[in-house]
Design a protein around this nucleic acid. Structure first.
Lengths: 232, 232
DNA sequence: GTCGGTAGTTGAACACGTTCAAGAAGGGCG
DNA sequence: CGCCCTTCTTGAACGTGTTCAACTACCGAC
């Protein structure tokens, strides 16, 4: 439609540059329609028509309708990382850092609450490449875990030596729990989820501090052993 | 096909007795095919054909393919309750009671691991009536929570007075976590899930006992307050 | 016995996600 | 320019879950 020079705007991978703008066009159209109508109500035919391509062409770039979700997934992760940066720069204490990063994650997701909720079912399926535990999404997952690693590393918190290496992954798991709650949260503006974060963070903060307590050492060790056993 | 007397075998609700055996026939056929071929590979047409009815007739009894899952759900709950009974009769200590009931739940689910895993995605969708948190499944859910109430009530465990009323629901939530792990468990025979139960139960047992400890009182209270706030 | 209404049943039709054989576009190379 | 190969694009066709207007079977009332 629009006339443009030979080189792509983003100047990405030159080996696959040819269809790149078509790919982005389809992706952006899909994201828009998902937001406007919801996931189930957006048909592949509608996406193709609005993007001005054929149905089959959409399938050339995205193996299935679900794969379009993965696009959303990756995009959200990047936005989360970016919107968490100010918090990591500003805060020093563990609690505020964690709370800030969790809130930032929900901030990013909030505009898509309606349709994100619908598609999270796909993410829950173990066989799906969309599962946050799957190998296919290990990239975004590791990035997310690393983000919580930064939360911890940049903080002044004193953490039990045995707990420390496991903590980022545990915090990520807690974040998954927050997202799960958010998905089911029907309160206006998902305020309950905000309460969950604000309530759970001091609790986590406290528990992390308590993990160094003598009485709790055996429990801590027991729990960590279990986690190590269960990791695949 | 087969000749039978006027009264139904189960002699259930007389008001809706007429189509009851057709309903059961469709349900049983669906469950069998789900087990044999998996959920996605079983078509509504195949169910109808094998049951010897028309496709539309299956939809007369079950609003959607998903609703057939709910049937599996309810059935599993009943079986769980039944297979947990010996444990509740035999054991007196909290730990063994809890472990026994959790293992019983997985025992019931195990033959269906293949297809149950696939359909749990539907249960994760918040808008779905299949969600364990939804109003539609409040019946089975309450029954399940009550089961954990029995685990606690019949035990000799000493529990913090404030924690006690919340504990059955928390234990059910933990059970949901076990099921979630089981769904993703690819280890042969799902042995990892068994390890999870055997590892987590002593931990829970220990934490419940510790909840009465003075140092932990504030944390316990803080956590319980949060939970009460978040319940809808 | 006949009538009427409810419960049950049917199969064709619809919209959807997905596939695929066929073709078009583009570019390197003689 | 002509050739070939890869990349990209198309739209018809398939199988699926679901709907629905029409039909049949039953059963109580008159």
């Amino acid at each position: 439609m629009t006339e443009q020079p030979a080189q792509t705007t983003t100047a990405g991978d030159p080996a696959t540059a040819r269809g790149e703008q078509t790919r982005q066009l389809i992706r952006d159209t899909a994201m828009r329609l998902f937001r406007e109508r919801g996931y189930a109500q957006t048909t592949m035919r509608a996406i193709a028509q609005e993007a001005g391509v054929s149905v089959g062409n959409a399938y050339y770039y995205f193996g299935s309708k679900d794969h379009l979700i993965q696009e959303f997934y990756a995009q959200s992760q990047v936005e989360h990382r970016a919107s968490a940066q100010p918090v990591l720069d500003r805060e020093e204490a563990f609690g505020p850092r964690l709370a800030g990063v969790l809130h930032a994650g929900i901030d990013v997701l909030t505009p898509s609450h309606g349709f994100a909720a619908t598609f999270f079912k796909t993410a829950a399926e173990p066989t799906s490449p969309l599962s946050p535990f799957s190998a296919e999404s290990s990239g975004p997952r590791q990035a997310a875990i690393d983000l919580f690693g930064e939360v911890l590393a940049g903080s002044t918190a004193k953490v039990d030596a045995e707990l420390r290496p496991q903590l980022p992954e545990l915090l990520w798991l807690a974040y998954m729990g927050v997202v799960l709650y958010w998905v089911h949260d029907r309160s206006p503006g998902q305020t309950k989820t905000r309460q969950l974060i604000d309530g759970a963070v001091p609790l986590i903060d406290r528990l992390v501090a308590l993990s160094r307590l003598r009485v709790l050492r055996p429990v801590t060790r027991q729990a960590l052993d279990l986690i190590r056993t269960l990791r695949h």
